[in-house]
């Protein structure tokens, strides 16, 4: 199966390990990975800040980059959702709305793709640790992917799972919110870190690099002994 990887700009620039793990994991599951060089960013930072028209060129670039893929897979629920959002943004546009629809139909978040398309629930991973999992807002509420990551984690050998209290609460990232409303964002991430600590888990796992960058950044600043890892890295552990 041919998979076109939408790595996301955060992974490209800051979380290379997540990209590598995604590639290795999907290859192990029999996929052939392609990475189109013309991919940039899905446009969320400016789109979410209200610069809708300013962002349209970037979105069109992304649509053209991925339009001919068989499957588009991204290790980020939020960025994968953005590809689904394009069809609403270009609503009424005779050229771009149909293209955006086509793109949305083949775009999946990584765990969603593994469970729903590859029909794999056990990726054969081993990870000897106690973990908790942060359910990212856009991935669960907007993209609607709730079960897939849990299904996959449940089948990882050696992994002990502990539920995160207040898991439905946003971590306080919110794109430019984190800097524009930094004082509120800090309180939100603080509460999230507190909840992670309460679980006693050694690792916080998530499926969205941006949330992990936020929570992880706070954990690191506070010098807490909790490690943060993307679900692709856990599923790629053997």
């Amino acid at each position: 199966m041919k998979v076109t990887l939408f790595a996301t700009c955060i992974v490209d620039l800051f979380q290379g390990n997540v990209g590598k793990a995604t590639v290795e994991l999907l290859e192990r599951l029999g996929c052939e990975i392609e990475f189109p060089e013309s991919q940039v960013c899905c446009g969320q930072p400016s789109y979410n800040s209200g610069y809708v028209n300013e962002t349209k060129d970037a979105m069109k670039k992304m649509i053209d980059t991925f339009i001919d893929a068989e499957y588009v897979v991204s290790p980020s629920g939020s960025c994968a959702y953005m590809f689904h959002e394009y069809q609403h943004i270009f609503k009424g546009d005779p050229v771009w709305e149909p293209k955006a629809k086509k793109l949305a139909e083949k775009t999946y978040e990584l765990t969603q793709f593994i469970v729903d398309v590859l029909k794999v629930e056990d990726v054969g991973a081993r990870f000897d640790a106690t973990v908790t999992y942060h359910t990212s807002c856009h991935m669960t509420r907007l993209l609607g992917v709730k079960e897939a990551p849990m299904t996959l984690l449940k089948n990882v050998k050696g992994l002990k799972f502990t539920e995160l209290p207040g898991k439905e609460q946003c971590c306080g990232f919110g794109g430019t919110f984190a800097v524009k409303m930094a004082q509120i964002s800090e309180q939100m991430v603080d509460e999230k870190v507190l909840h992670v600590e309460e679980t006693g888990a050694e690792y916080l796992i998530g499926a969205d690099a941006a949330c992990l960058m936020n929570i992880g950044g706070r954990i690191e600043r506070q010098g807490k002994p909790i490690k943060v890892m993307h679900i692709a890295e856990v599923l790629n552990s053997r």
Partner: peptide, 15 residues
């Protein structure tokens, strides 16, 4: 309030 990750020495795309 938070640390920010240092950029990858090698971009993922280059890898």
């Amino acid at each position: 309030s938070r640390d920010f990750p240092a950029p990858n020495k090698e971009r993922f795309r280059d890898w």
